[in-house]
């Protein structure tokens, strides 16, 4: 029982990381219809940006975290500007931006590899890894930090979409681009901001996860797969789906590894099995599009 309580905090924190990557996918997917597998690279690059700022330049964490997020937001913005927009404006088909972004994935990966090599770099969390107890729940201070930051981000994004006219406009673009444009919504701006926001959120995932294991280029692919799986599980229609999918995935993984009596190598299959199950049985994900009223 105490094992379970101990696991809950850690698994929730892992789920938060997955959820943030899923949110990065979602932010780009909704208004543009593009599944951006480079989200994983963005997470990895966010961790490296934090490492450069905090680890190399020795900038305090309170500056390094927003700094790294800003760097990735700019990278996301530039990606839309230089690779996606020219294609869309020249009327390229729906597949073209997806392929262009896969190309960017390779470029991000190789560029980071060129600068940092395949090595692992340490990233310090702001509060270290002390044991923190919250009632019956125990976890590291980093796990609690991940959970709190993720909650703040999701609440902020949710409020933005639910409570602001701008947020509604983003949604309107997702629903009907043409009508949205005729309502005075700047499609270019919304698209660029979606990419910037997606990259910023992915960066948070990377830099929150970094202190646990370390920062490395190879982390990108797992981020991309886990985030995509969380997205499919939670559904692409609602912001809450991303975090729900992330937490379900992390719990499925950790509880299987801990309690299901199969060789631990086989527990690897949890993610693909969940992914396939959802794609077959409930391709819309757990959360359907919102029913108003």
């Amino acid at each position: 029982m105490s094992d379970l309580l101990e696991l809950l905090v850690s698994a929730t924190a892992s789920g938060c990381v997955y959820g943030l990557v899923a949110l990065a996918y979602l932010l780009v997917l909704r208004p543009t219809g593009v599944v951006n597998f480079a989200s994983g690279e963005w997470a990895m690059m966010g961790a490296f940006a934090a490492y450069v700022l905090a680890g190399m330049l020795e900038v305090p964490t309170v500056v390094a975290i927003p700094g790294a997020v800003l760097v990735l937001a700019v990278i996301g913005w530039a990606t839309e500007w230089f690779t996606v927009r020219p294609l869309v404006e020249r009327g390229a088909g729906h597949l073209a931006p997806i392929l262009a972004l896969l190309g960017m994935l390779v470029i991000y990966h190789q560029a980071t590899l060129l600068v940092f090599g395949g090595e692992n770099y340490p990233l310090d969390g702001p509060f270290g890894f002390n044991r923190v107890e919250l009632g019956p729940f125990a976890g590291t201070s980093q796990s609690f930090f991940i959970i709190v930051m993720t909650a703040v981000i999701f609440v902020a994004v949710w409020l933005f979409f639910e409570r602001t006219v701008w947020g509604k406009s983003f949604e309107a673009v997702a629903i009907n681009r043409r009508a949205a444009a005729l309502m005075g919504i700047n499609l270019r701006l919304v698209t660029a901001l979606s990419f910037a926001g997606g990259a910023a959120v992915a960066a948070m995932a990377g830099l929150l996860d970094g202190p646990r294991g370390s920062v490395e280029v190879n982390a990108a692919l797992p981020f991309a797969v886990q985030g995509f799986s969380a997205l499919i599980i939670g559904g692409i229609n609602r912001v809450e789906g991303a975090i729900l999918g992330g937490i379900i995935l992390a719990f499925a993984e950790d509880l299987t590894r801990r309690y299901v009596p199969i060789p631990s190598g086989l527990a690897l299959g949890v993610t693909p099995v969940l992914l396939i199950a959802f794609l077959l049985v409930r391709p819309t994900g757990l959360l359907r599009a919102k029913e108003a009223g």
């Binding site: 698994a11 997955y18 294991g213 797992p222």
Partner: peptide, 21 residues
Amino acid sequence: VEEVIPAGSKSALPQMQKVRA
């Protein structure tokens, strides 16, 4: 006990709980 920590894991807590047990 034989445990595997797959590449890309976010934590090794479940495996190490089994080791502890």
